[in-house]
Design a protein around this nucleic acid. Structure first.
Lengths: 108, 108
DNA sequence: CATGTCACTACGTTTTTTGTAGCAAAACTA
DNA sequence: TAGTTTTGCTACAAAAAACGTAGTGACATG
């Protein structure tokens, strides 16, 4: 799966509309989960693997590369961490957390 | 791929934390794209297929079923449409649209 | 120098998604 | 009302993505 780059054809848009590139990136398995987790602080590869519970190292490594190449995360001395932009993105999706709790009531 | 149900094990959480169930659902190919598109109004199966440009009917049908079973979309006389909850969800992710435009500048 | 930890890579298997074709039902059209 | 479109799918084979296990090289620890 190649990196979705705004301005180039991506899943959902031949012209590469930024939102579609972003949704392509985030719509891959574990991508949002990784961002979600990293907001609580930098994490090592192994800890991310533990956190994700069932992600394969292959997939984790791929997602990390993609997120790095998309300027959302970076490697620091403490492990993988959100960039400033990554934090911005997290803050945009953060409201999903409390909304999800309400949404969950449907399933009872 | 089975429907991620809050309270049951889902990708990223053995206990089925609502946010993880939601991220599992939305982290499947085309899921957010479908929600994004439907906010502009109800759409038929064929129109969604056109809009998504490269989704297979098999996958579109699966995603629609999942979103229906998750109370985010429903069938109306005008085709598939967001439920009230689906609209709420859209409004939460809407800010991604304008943020994506800024994010896109990284790639130049 | 032996042992452990860490960040991966290799690789074969399973699961998901694609792409093309086609079909039955409903809606238009002559 | 018979024929044509349109619609909402399903079937199925092929391609791609993700998994799971094993293992490797780099670095730290004792």
């Amino acid at each position: 799966m190649k990196l979705p780059i705004p301005g180039q054809p991506v899943r959902g848009s031949k012209t590469g509309a930024p939102i579609m590139a972003l949704l392509d990136l985030l719509g891959r398995s574990w991508a949002m989960g990784i961002v979600w987790h990293l907001y609580s602080g930098p994490s090592t590869f192994r800890k991310l693997q533990d956190y994700c519970e069932s992600i394969s190292p292959t997939t984790l490594n791929k997602r990390l590369k993609e997120l790095k190449d998309s300027y959302l995360i970076e490697r620091t001395v403490n492990g993988y961490a959100l960039t400033e932009q990554g934090k911005e993105l997290y803050e945009l999706i953060e409201p999903l957390g409390s909304w999800a709790k309400i949404w969950a009531k449907n399933f009872k």
